[in-house]
């Protein structure tokens, strides 16, 4: 089962991230992981939260633009070459990684071209893939 990610458009001006995180906090939504990709004028805030549906509805209600994507979450072996072995498997099968980032622990979420194919490929190779619900409740 994939891990849902919310991408939010945020203008690069003081306090916007604070507003965003405060909204989620007040609604009792827990952020399990995040990443910020930024340009000079705006950024894309990527969020893994425990209640993705609620969070998306809340943000949209407050006029944020939100896009939802399915990512796969992988437990990367915590040892030298751990990440490399995962990436090699994906590239050997021609699966392109759009972006990835580490969330809690050594968990890393990947936005890949074909999450289903990537997931079964990794599972077959004995890599631990963590399900969405599991991620949310970590």
């Amino acid at each position: 089962m994939h891990t849902r990610e919310l991408s939010v458009f945020v203008e690069n001006k003081a306090g916007r991230l604070a507003v965003l995180t405060k909204l989620l906090g007040q609604a009792g939504i827990n952020i399990r992981g995040f990443s910020v990709a930024d340009m000079s004028d705006y950024g894309i805030v990527r969020l893994i939260v425990d209640k993705p549906d609620e969070a998306a509805a809340l943000l949209r209600d407050r006029s944020f633009i939100v896009r939802e994507s399915n990512l796969i979450c992988i437990r990367v072996p915590d040892q030298p070459g751990g990440l490399s072995s995962i990436l090699n498997m994906l590239s050997a099968s021609d699966i392109n990684v759009e972006y990835m980032y580490a969330i809690v622990d050594t968990l890393i979420v990947f936005n890949v071209e074909n999450p289903d194919q990537a997931e079964s490929l990794l599972l077959e190779s004995g890599v631990k893939v963590v399900s969405g619900p599991e991620v949310y409740s970590l």
Partner: peptide
């Protein structure tokens, strides 16, 4: 930006 005008990938935004 609007729903139709937002992508989660930076390169598409660019």
């Amino acid at each position: 930006v609007s729903d139709n005008l937002f992508f989660n990938e930076m390169k598409r935004m660019h």
